[in-house]
């Protein structure tokens, strides 16, 4: 395959030992995501989305296969792959500003600190008024914004997100999706996000990877590029477009087939 900047996953498999038995969670997954694009891992619960994302982050070791980011092999967590989790991960003892600055501080990046990187990203996620607040004073959506700003301020090559908006109410979820897209487009960040929400996947993704389960396999790769012809950040135009409805129905059928297999 062509070597290019971006994420490349080749022949990844993962099995778990559980109660003396070996369970194959992921089977021979190969996919690639060009730099600057947003990829979404979509699939039914238990198909191994989180496991795959954690292997890309280096938090989990593959049983087979290899992962590269910008042609460098990935084998342990590092600064080039920042991750936003579904659980709230703001450090409760740090203010919003210190949370966002955390990555730069521990990496000894005082120059970036001086250049106002922290304030830039706090503003980018709309938390300037809360810079001195502690996480316990913030709502769930705001805490996720802190996590996103903290990860982006570290300038990762790849932003990983595991259902970051899963715990939010629908309206906040929409706002966060728009916010994420605007920040990510401006910073040209490469993103790999996990979702099991079809609308979210199609709205966020330049590429959507649909995984099937038992074992987790890459079943289909979808390109919702119809969005290029729609006005930007226009949720209604997006939801009403024929292409969206067609893809939505198509994925629903894939999901239904998965349900049938499981039963």
């Amino acid at each position: 395959m062509l070597s290019a900047r971006g994420l490349s996953v080749s022949g990844i498999s993962k099995s778990f030992q559980s109660g003396g038995r070996t369970i194959l969670a992921l089977d021979d997954i190969s996919l690639s995501l060009p730099a600057g694009k947003v990829g979404v891992l979509l699939g039914p619960s238990g198909c191994g989305k989180s496991t795959l994302l954690r292997m890309i982050a280096g938090l989990e070791t593959p049983s087979g296969g290899g992962i590269t980011l910008n042609d460098r092999a990935v084998y342990r967590p590092a600064r080039d792959r920042g991750m936003v989790f579904q659980d709230y991960t703001s450090f409760p003892w740090l203010t919003v500003r210190d949370n966002v600055a955390y990555g730069l501080k521990i990496n000894g990046d005082s120059s970036a600190l001086n250049e106002g990187t922290v304030d830039h990203f706090i503003r980018a996620v709309g938390l300037d008024k809360f810079a001195d607040a502690y996480p316990h004073q913030l709502s769930g959506g705001m805490r996720q914004r802190v996590a996103i700003a903290r990860t982006l301020a570290n300038y990762p090559d790849l932003l990983l997100m595991d259902e970051p908006f899963g715990a939010l109410d629908p309206e906040t979820r929409w706002q966060m999706q728009d916010l994420l897209l605007s920040v990510v487009r401006k910073e040209r960040t490469t993103v790999m996000a996990v979702s099991h929400d079809i609308e979210e996947a199609l709205y966020l993704g330049d590429v959507v990877f649909f995984l099937s389960r038992h074992p987790g396999r890459l079943k289909e790769t979808l390109y919702p590029d119809f969005k290029a012809g729609l006005p930007e950040n226009d949720r209604e135009a997006f939801l009403q477009s024929d292409d969206y409805r067609r893809l939505d129905l198509h994925i629903r059928r894939l999901m239904r087939d998965e349900g049938r297999d499981a039963a």
Binding site: A57, G58, L59, P77, A78, R79, R81, G82, M83, F85, D87, T89, F91, Y102, G103, I106, N107, A147, R150, T151, N154, L160
Partner: peptide
Amino acid sequence: PRVLIETAKTLGGGRRI
């Protein structure tokens, strides 16, 4: 919480930090 430790790892934190 494990997730706080993992967050710090993906932000580039070493063991001592």
